[in-house]
Design a protein around this nucleic acid. Sequence first.
DNA 1: AATGAATGAGAGTTCATTCAT
DNA 2: AATGAATGAACTCTCATTCAT
Lengths: 199, 199, 199, 199
Amino acid sequence: MGRREDKKLEKRSRLDEAGVQELLSAGYAGATVERIVAAADVARGTFYLYYSDKHALFAVLLERLYGPLVAALATARDALAADTAPPVVYAELGEALATLIGGQPALTQVALREARAAGPGGEAVRAWTAQVEGLTEEILAASVERGLLRPHAVRPVALAIVGGVERLTWGWLAQEGGLDPAVVTMELIGLFTYGLARG
Amino acid sequence: MGRREDKKLEKRSRLDEAGVQELLSAGYAGATVERIVAAADVARGTFYLYYSDKHALFAVLLERLYGPLVAALATARDALAADTAPPVVYAELGEALATLIGGQPALTQVALREARAAGPGGEAVRAWTAQVEGLTEEILAASVERGLLRPHAVRPVALAIVGGVERLTWGWLAQEGGLDPAVVTMELIGLFTYGLARG
Amino acid sequence: MGRREDKKLEKRSRLDEAGVQELLSAGYAGATVERIVAAADVARGTFYLYYSDKHALFAVLLERLYGPLVAALATARDALAADTAPPVVYAELGEALATLIGGQPALTQVALREARAAGPGGEAVRAWTAQVEGLTEEILAASVERGLLRPHAVRPVALAIVGGVERLTWGWLAQEGGLDPAVVTMELIGLFTYGLARG
Amino acid sequence: MGRREDKKLEKRSRLDEAGVQELLSAGYAGATVERIVAAADVARGTFYLYYSDKHALFAVLLERLYGPLVAALATARDALAADTAPPVVYAELGEALATLIGGQPALTQVALREARAAGPGGEAVRAWTAQVEGLTEEILAASVERGLLRPHAVRPVALAIVGGVERLTWGWLAQEGGLDPAVVTMELIGLFTYGLARG
DNA sequence: AATGAATGAGAGTTCATTCAT
DNA sequence: AATGAATGAACTCTCATTCAT
């Protein structure tokens, strides 16, 4: 690879990084291309060499986060539909999600930020979260099917689980405090497996 | 009350209503004073007679939603700390929340919209949600204290519950479909009480 | 009329005047709102209180020029169709056109400028010139009908006449020199009436 | 000629062709180098190897159109000044013009487009049209001198004729309809020779 | 000779807020 | 109390041109 391509790649990744940071601190609606290019130390026009507009950057970043995440969920669903041992499936799914989210915390926070926002930013995120929630639903259904979980209305439960997990992820990423990952994981499993009833 | 005050109140309430609708459709960052005054059929400058700026309107609306909601949670917490019969406490709390939220669905949606947004809008909402979550935490702690629930790490569990409930409320308000309130309520109680483990 | 309306009208006319001058010197494509507001001594945003965008200003100006012009042509056509004495019709038409064009020379020049331009500016002008040429055609046809002119293919002749008149108008407005209005008028009449053939 | 020069010529002619098309559809002011190089399938920088800037391309194209056209007019003028038989002169001139214009219709349309435009594009065209009109004037003067035409003010008449011819050429190139070349030619000759007066 | 990444000035447009009426 | 004209900073996006490769 020539020096030119090197430089180009580096510039793109500087823009990406600056974009994530800007989206993180200002949100989709408030993010400005001007601040992104300033942070990336590039000229204003350069941004448009890499992205057709602000939204295109956002879309690329979302794809980078949600693409693998959705893939991991789909894999888990398929594994459950086949005969794979459930504990292995759950463990691998949890591992994958933790790695994906833990590997790009800022981007995850950006996505959670926009999840309910009005306008094109929110719409873009919700296109992905709809997939996440749909797959979660299917995983629950498959688990019930295989007798791993008690029967229940999978749609509301899937949403409640995703909502709860998102809230805790957000708290962790926003450094709200009092949220030790190990404790949180255990409590989540406990809560959604056994509930809060005594004994 | 004289006719003057009448008119004034009417104008303010028209502004409030228009504000909620505008915030609902455009979000805090995207909301424009121009559209609000147009919808309220009031001159642009009039807006600033009633609110010092866009943020002030938002703050007032949030207070109207979260004030009573926080009060209801505080009441429940205090009732649990005293000797009131728990089932009554829970029932009354549920009733109160349902009434408050069901009575101002648009405003609730606005608040959920902004809950994780960047900027002053998000900050304002989070000041309230922190109270809601804190009180939920206290209610859980009190419930454990009185032996109603098994011991657990109350903070993460409180967040998970609030997150799950919020997600379902959002789905219901956004008319996502497949979310019959009666079913949702039962499933939520079942999920958080007994979990999903087989019988 | 209050002082406020006065001011508003004055501002609008300052914008109009500045707009004409800017369009004259830079053309539709090259005209900038910034220079217009600078010349009109108004803030940038003020422009958009009066016109939704650059094109709207242009459209209004064109209407102001071509509206009466088209009306005068239509009147002449109708008068010929009725039994009005032809010399009177022609004289009144010439008078009207001269007054309209002579009264707004800069605007006329702007219109001639854009008459064949690419883009929205040109399209807008051509919507009007099509009317002018269509009416000229009808006037020729009516004149032939009444035996005032020899039979001929009215469409190409109408275009040739309009083209010739436009070229001379342009030369006069652009101060090309050697174009004394009186001489030009006589020569035009002579040319289109008797041609250039000897005796 | 070596393969290298071949290639170079080919690239230049691709740029020329693309340039004409771009100028035709967007006008001088609206034409972008980006679209030209895209259409010519050449890199952006390559454009500047052949032309110092956008204007230089335009100047070259104009020269290609107007150079021979002006030469043909000069030839006709000189032939009239000498003793050549007038009908032959007129016929040859008409033939030459028709061939030149008919051979490069797109370029002709571009020139007519810009003929009254503001800015450098218009200036460049008008430098040529001034020559065309000047020569037309001289041809008329020579024709009067030789007793072929009645005496008249040659300048305004020259402009009127050029204007009329241009208008019809434009209509033909822009495919306005109703302009059969044979009919148009005959009518033009009739109009400028005998006028529209009856009998 | 050819490339195409990079630049940055400058365009149109929006909008919260002010203030004379 | 109410109006709405006016402001001007800030934003997104375009494009002729340069220059290292």
